[in-house]
Amino acid sequence: MVGVDSAKSVSTIDQRTGVLDPAAGASGMYWSWNAGYIFMKIEGTSPQAPLDPNLGERHFEYHTGLFGGFSSPTLNNLKTIHLHSHEPAMVRRDANAPHFHLYVDALEIFTNPVTISIAEHPASHADPFSATIANNYVNMFVLDHVHNP
């Protein structure tokens, strides 16, 4: 799954530890105003983006989250992907777990399948356009190879 599943997204504070701790592991990847985790965050400059007077640069930012809502429905950007491996992954009791090396092509966020115009969409947070971004970034993962122990 790409994102934080809905059960974890509504869990009580004592269960939000480690990477799900909003003031530690998930710091910067949690929306405190729209309680939920940010699944994908990309920010940067682009000649196509409008000038941000506060930052003094042509800034764009996409923060994508939304797990479907805790009481009433919201957009749901959770995605399940299946990655195929050409080599078997070995699990041995006496050894470390196999390592899966993913190849992630960030360009897919902007192109696959929908070409995104930064000029038109310099920012996206919790908004309908985030669905387009999520439908794109879900295509950026390739399982490149497996390191067996």
Partner: peptide, 8 residues
């Protein structure tokens, strides 16, 4: 209503 629980 962006936050569901007082603790958050």
């Amino acid at each position: 209503g962006g936050v569901p629980n007082l603790d958050l």
